[in-house]
Design a protein around this nucleic acid. Structure first.
Lengths: 210, 210
DNA sequence: CTGTATCAATCGATTGATTGAATTATTTGG
DNA sequence: CCAAATAATTCAATCAATCGATTGATACAG
């Protein structure tokens, strides 16, 4: 575990730098130094700075696939009861990953930077392989839970509001923590957030209005 | 309207560059060029790049103050009915500003970049003058609407989930629009989003669970 | 004249990329 | 089992390009 390949070390260091400072601002020298290697290792392993960027995107996609595997990619028939249970499980997973997960902060930061550049090649990659299929799967489950058509605008938007709530607690973490009087995100904080999100989820899916 | 001061032009150009590329990556040359002036004007008007950054933060604060003026800073007594009406009005305002408002994209991008640097001086400034008092005011209204204690963790978190939902539609705009099949954000799209958010708000505040 | 504002020109520092040598790891031949 | 040979990495050094900042000159209004 302590001995990692230079390639993996570079990706990890780049994720942090890219996330914190942005792609252009992050210097390859600093990344290489963080990884404990030479600048030209980046050219060797990834062809250049841009290749390292794409490698980071792939790493993010891999990680999120792990979290999102609760959402089936193929349509399955679910009872409303089981659909709601699946959604609850997913909310717990998202919170655990985004709030407690190691490296989640850096990964979210990285994705965020890419989001700010709507024509980013990284964004294109992430959307097609990750966002689109997972969101569609979520809509199907949401549909099973509420009885509303899965591909209706309102269901799609409802799913976005669910995801948005979780994401916000990571994005605006400095603000949230300060306002809550929290020193950081740990178990009790994650529990409090989860509790609130599950209440919202229940309200949105349980009453037949969602 | 078409004739603006160099100072204002620089702030506007900087907001776009800072938001899109990040503070460090955005070059003062490009900003000056966008503003149609010389590099050294930045040093003249703002003392340097850092001064321009702070000027952008102040501009953001001013804009948001306009939107948030619906939320009273001083405690007022509100009936649950009127409190809910106030919250609905605020949701409409937020959507109008974030989704339709000119320059909102750039401003959000700018704030987002600062959020990624938790010890940013800009963030400190924005929190004290903007986030803290407005969030507290929102909690008070939320409390009036639901009967729950305003400074309880759950109310504070509930308010964050409300704000987070709106914010997400701006932050993840490229993803949302693509998934929804939208070409951009315009009136009909804003209405659809507003409708969903008002439903969520009603569920959270109306049932006595929020 | 005085002060405000903008200009082109230039400063040292740092950027991503490249190079060929040096180092390390793996495979091969005896 | 060891040593020679080959391949795989990493290294310091260097490149042109660009960075933020500064300078002194210039233009203009009161």
């Amino acid at each position: 575990m302590s001995q990692q390949s230079t390639r993996a070390l570079l990706i990890r260091a780049a994720m942090i730098r890219f996330g914190r400072e942005g792609y252009e601002a992050a210097s390859t020298r600093a990344i290489a130094a963080d990884a404990g290697t030479n600048i030209s290792s980046i050219a060797y392993h990834f062809g250049g700075k841009e290749g390292l960027r794409i490698a980071c995107a792939d790493a993010v996609a891999d990680q999120i696939q792990q979290v999102a595997r609760t959402v089936p990619l193929v349509p399955v028939v679910l009872s409303p009861r089981m659909a709601r249970a699946t959604l609850r499980r997913l909310v717990r997973r998202m919170v655990t990953f985004l709030i407690l997960g190691a490296g989640a902060n850096e990964m979210v930061g990285f994705v965020l930077r890419e989001l700010a550049q709507p024509d980013s090649p990284v964004l294109e990659r992430l959307y097609a392989t990750l966002v689109e299929p997972r969101h569609a799967g979520l809509c199907a489950i949401w549909s099973a839970a509420t009885g509303r058509p899965a591909e209706s605008d309102d269901v799609k938007l409802a799913v976005f509001t669910l995801v948005g709530q979780v994401a916000y607690f990571r994005l605006a973490a400095p603000i949230v923590q300060r306002r809550m009087g929290w020193q950081g995100y740990s178990r009790p904080e994650a529990r409090a957030i989860t509790r609130r999100l599950l209440v919202n989820l229940e309200l949105m899916t349980g009453g037949g209005n969602g």
